[in-house]
Nucleic acid binder design. Structure first.
Length: 565
RNA sequence: GACCCGUUAGCUCAGCUGGUAGAGCAAUUCACUUUUAAUGAAUGGGCCCUAGGUUCGAAUCCUAGACGGGUCACCA
């Protein structure tokens, strides 16, 4: 049998199982069936959580007897076998459930006739999920253990687990096979339990403040609410392009126009940009909008939220983050944007307010910048290069240049700055909030300025003109403050994780490297029935009947037309 | 996108200036009725990421590529 076609079928056998270890395990599975044991039974109930079992039998350790045990008690435990130590006619194993490891003991004489030698010892192994019934005792080395009178298979594993001591180290496998990572590296689960708690608490916090949770579209006709490149998809029935949302902002503010005075949404945004340790193409944000409030109120409620999270998670206000320590004690420091350039970034004040001087300063420090950028954008270049990474403890940077804040309200005192802040910690942006721009004419002009920027600098992340949104504002929106908080990055801070991939259950990965011989056999027709297009990646099978059709309907039509000519 | 590092048994990793591919765990067989990464003995297990090149000979050297990790750039 050829060894080289992992993903194909040959002779009716699926060859991902073509491996000595897997074959051994499949043999054992078959043997179980032969002797009338279903390796995948359906009627098993979860046993007592291992933690409860251990806690409840802690008292056995106090017994004065030679053998510390209580045969009057009966327990059922369930879990995955992580270790097996067979010593002839008796054996110890450790099984793991959601709470952790617990030891079980079984021997030839206390199990049904022949069951130990023929079944448990030979056919149960590390990786299998089992059910164990018996009474508690304490071993000579002082470990509370279940002495089994019955052991049953719950689910047979036909793939072996990684090595028991070193576990699964390979980062790639850890991300691609997260379930295996979770089986082998218990702390991984802790991080995601923490993440779940954070999301839940954030939701509860806003609900308790009478915010309404809403769900707005994820497929947008015009991408908006942030500066970012969107993913593009196609709606077949309408034959239109749709953009996966880069932010929910503009829809949430439409709801404020509609009279909802406090709303929030926690969900994914999608940005078609580079990936690194702080960027995943899909990421989770909470955005909330609060009528009759200003950006200063947002800073207060943000501090309140952090206190709420830390109190409910029982976390110390000073948390380690790699080499550094972050002090989350509220209130957080507040520094105006331009001031931060000087006090934190160390840039002479006279430079920070002059385009020509900034360009010279940037050049001096070997930072490339487009000369067509406006003052605000140039100040942003300075901020990114000299300030951002120095913001370790939570810091609100306030009063942003208005031209880099196209959706924020101008300050009544100074038309060049916006009522906006961003919250930074450990050199990373965590939140962004502002008093919302509710002047429809001003909003129109700002969109237009974005479109102009796009033309002047080719910045394809600048915003699009969204006249539908301007129309909504034109009906009148109450003065409103709105904020977005990056949940992934927040969880990174709270769990001392330095890669966003470690707080995402299934981070985005490139497709696995294809091995040439392993390509699936393709015996169906490989050209589009309508236009004759023959690039396999562009084709999909017909919904009904046979044949292939183009995924991109518009392109298909065009090809068909050209062919007709 | 640029640079650096990695890819060898199911897993964790060795493999020197090029000379028949190694260990531990795991697996198979045997011994062992309180072990703690159980122990002892024997056996089996490799497209050395892929494709080219240099060479009498390549896991090893060269070129290109794939995937992963890191640094930087991009992402206000």
């Amino acid at each position: 049998m050829p060894k080289k076609s992992r993903n194909t079928k040959t002779g009716g056998e699926i060859l991902i199982f073509d491996n000595q270890y897997i074959q051994e395990r499949i043999k054992k599975t078959k043997k179980l069936r032969e002797i009338g044991i279903n390796p995948y039974p359906n009627q098993i109930k979860k046993g007592m959580p291992s933690k409860h079992f251990l806690a409840e039998n802690e008292i056995l350790k106090e017994l004065d007897a030679e053998v510390k045990k209580d045969e009057t008690k009966h327990y059922t435990l369930t879990g995955r076998i992580k270790f097996v130590r067979i010593m002839g006619k008796a054996a110890f194993a450790k099984i793991e459930d959601n709470d952790g490891l617990v030891q079980i003991y079984y021997n030839r004489d206390d199990l049904p006739e022949g069951y130990y030698n023929d079944v448990v010892k030979k056919l149960f192994e590390v990786g299998d999920i089992i059910e164990a019934k018996g009474f508690p005792f304490v071993t000579q080395t002082g470990e509370i253990t279940l002495h089994c009178t019955e052991v049953n298979i719950v689910s047979k594993a036909i793939f072996p687990l990684p090595e028991k001591f070193h576990g699964l180290q390979d980062q790639e496998l850890r991300y691609r096979q997260r379930y295996l990572d979770m089986i082998m590296n218990p702390h991984v689960k802790e991080t995601f339990v923490m993440r779940s708690k954070v999301v839940s608490l954030v939701r509860r916090f806003f609900e308790e403040k009478n915010f309404l949770e809403v769900e707005t579209p994820m497929m947008h006709p015009i991408p908006g609410g942030a500066n970012a490149r969107p993913f593009i998809t196609h709606h077949n029935a309408l034959d239109v392009e749709r953009y996966l949302r880069i932010a929910p902002e503009l829809y949430l503010k439409r709801l404020i126009v509609g009279g909802m005075e406090a709303v929030f949404e926690i969900n994914r945004n999608f940005r078609n940009e580079g990936m690194d340790h702080t960027h995943n193409p899909e990421f989770t944000m909470i955005e909330f909008y609060w009528a009759y409030h200003r950006y200063t109120d947002l800073m207060n409620i943000t501090e309140e939220l952090f206190d709420y999270l830390f109190d409910n998670l029982g976390l110390d206000r000073k948390l380690p983050y790699g080499e550094i320590k972050i002090d989350f004690t509220t209130p957080f420091t507040k520094v105006p944007y331009i001031e931060a350039l000087t006090t934190i970034g160390g840039i002479p004040a006279e430079i920070t307010k002059d385009k020509v001087k900034i360009l010279a300063y940037l050049k001096e420090h070997k930072i490339e910048a487009d000369e067509n950028l406006t003052l605000g954008y140039l100040q942003a270049e300075l901020f990114d290069a000299f300030v951002e990474e120095k913001l370790i403890n939570p810091t609100f940077i306030t009063d942003f240049p208005v031209d880099i804040s196209p959706l924020a309200r101008r300050s009544d005192d100074n038309p060049d700055i916006a009522e906006r802040f961003e919250l930074f910690m450990a050199g990373k942006e965590i939140a962004n909030g502002f008093s919302e721009l509710n002047d429809p004419i001003d909003q129109y002009e700002r969109f237009k300025a974005q479109v102009d920027t796009k033309e002047a600098t080719g910045d394809d992340e600048a915003m699009h003109m969204d006249t539908d949104y301007v129309k909504a504002l034109s009906y009148g929106m109450t003065p409103t403050a709105g904020e977005g908080i990056g949940i992934d990055r927040l969880v990174m801070m709270l769990t001392n994780q330095h890669s966003i991939r470690d707080v995402l259950l299934f981070p985005a990965m490139k497709p696995e490297a294809p091995r040439p011989e392993l390509q699936p056999l393709c015996d169906v027709e490989t050209i589009c029935k309508k236009c004759g297009h023959d690039v396999a990646e562009d084709l999909k099978p017909a919904k009904k009947g046979k044949g292939m059709f183009c995924i991109d309907v518009a392109a298909c039509k065009q090809r068909a037309q050209e062919k007709a000519k």
